[in-house]
Amino acid sequence: MKKLLFSLLILASLGSMAQVKLGLKLAPVVTANRAKNDAKTVENDGSKMKFSIGLIADKPLSETYFLSSGLIYLPKRMAFQNADGTIEDEYKLQYLQIPVTLKLFTNEIAPDLKGYLQVGSALEIMVFNEDLDTNSTIEKFTPIDIPVILGAGIEFRAGINTTLFGGFSYQRGLVNAVNEAAVAEVEGLQLRSTVFSIDLGVKF
């Protein structure tokens, strides 16, 4: 009986996995941040283009609703300056992102072509930051971020098992990246990420 139950569980898992579409995503991203402090003396210091890459997995919940997740490498730039120009800092951070989003697909807008809207969030785990020395404004970074993700795009079925997709997404970080600042002039410093992404990839 136990062997039968175990076999049924294996078959059910394989059947569930058979419905999951796995893919690869490459995304040029524009990364910036929203900066402020208690005295309102700091401001953002520009943005920078970087590249993100990772694996994605889409599981159908119905014909038009898909649960989307994956494992994405996402580099970010945190930069700020104060009003009088005496402090101007830039930090390079790297995260592993685990998104959990819902994709809502349209009917076909052309043969084998559908549009989609995407909404959800993610858990981001910091895997690298620049070595902080005694001259750094920031002594310690928060090890995680949780962004809100909004996106839209199109998918084209290029074969029986191959789907190409392209779109864009906006990711707004909710967690302050600064765990501890070392300079009194920026007391209460808060840096929250903003990422604009061009999402390109293929699913199999």
Results as ranks from 00 to 15, higher is better:
Glu90Ser: 14
Gln81Tyr: 14
Ser121Gln: 11
Gly159Ile: 01
Val100Thr: 14
Leu132Ile: 07
Thr162Asn: 07
Leu123Met: 12
Ser169Met: 05
Val202Leu: 12
Arg157Phe: 00
Lys59Tyr: 12
Val178Pro: 02
Phe128Ile: 00
Met126Gly: 04
Pro60Cys: 12
Ser52Ile: 07
Ile125Cys: 06
Ala27Pro: 03
Ser169Leu: 06
Ser62Ala: 14
Gly85Pro: 07
Thr163Arg: 12
Ile98Glu: 06
Ser62Cys: 12
Ser121Lys: 10
Phe51Leu: 15
Glu180Arg: 04
Glu185Lys: 12
Gln94Leu: 07
Glu108Gln: 15
Phe141Thr: 01
Ile109Leu: 13
Lys48Gly: 05
Lys40Leu: 14
Val178Trp: 02
Ser136Tyr: 02
Val175Arg: 08
Ser121Tyr: 08
Arg77Pro: 00
Asp89Phe: 01
Val186Tyr: 02
Ala110Cys: 07
Thr162Gly: 00
Gly115Gln: 04
Ser7Ala: 13
Tyr65His: 11
Leu132Gly: 03
Gly23Arg: 02
Leu55Arg: 01
Gly46His: 11
Gly70Cys: 05
Leu189Asn: 02
Gly188Asp: 03
Met126Cys: 06
Asp199His: 01
Pro75Asp: 06
Leu96Cys: 10
Ser68Lys: 10
Val127Lys: 11
Lys50Gln: 13
Glu180Thr: 05
Asp199Cys: 01
Ala79Tyr: 02
Leu123Cys: 08
Ser7Lys: 00
Ile149Asp: 01
Gly85Phe: 08
Val148Gly: 11
Pro75Tyr: 04
Asn82Lys: 03
Asn107Trp: 11
Gly173Trp: 02
Leu22Val: 11
Ser52Asn: 11
Asp45Trp: 04
Ala177Glu: 06
Asp145Thr: 08
Phe204Leu: 12
Ile149His: 02
Leu132His: 03
Glu155Leu: 00
Lys2Arg: 09
Lys3Asp: 15
Ala158Cys: 13
Ile149Leu: 09
Ile146Arg: 00
Leu117Ile: 14
Leu102Val: 10
Asn44Thr: 07
Val30Leu: 15
Glu88Tyr: 04
Gly15Met: 12
Asn179Leu: 00
Tyr65Glu: 08
Leu4Gly: 00
Gly201Ser: 09
Asp45Thr: 02
Phe168Asp: 00
Asp133Val: 01
Thr162Val: 11
Ser13Met: 15
Gly15His: 11
Phe196Cys: 03
Lys140Phe: 07
Glu90Cys: 05
Ile98Leu: 15
Arg172Phe: 03
Asp199Trp: 01
Ala177Met: 15
Val178Gln: 01
Lys114Pro: 00
Lys103Pro: 03
Leu26Ser: 09
Ala32Val: 04
Ala12Thr: 07
Gln94Gly: 10
Asn129Lys: 06
Ile109Trp: 11
Pro60Arg: 08
Asn176Ala: 07
Leu93Thr: 02
Ser13Ile: 15
Leu61His: 10
Glu155Arg: 08
Ala57Gly: 13
Pro147Tyr: 06
Leu113Tyr: 05
Gly120Glu: 04
Phe165Asn: 04
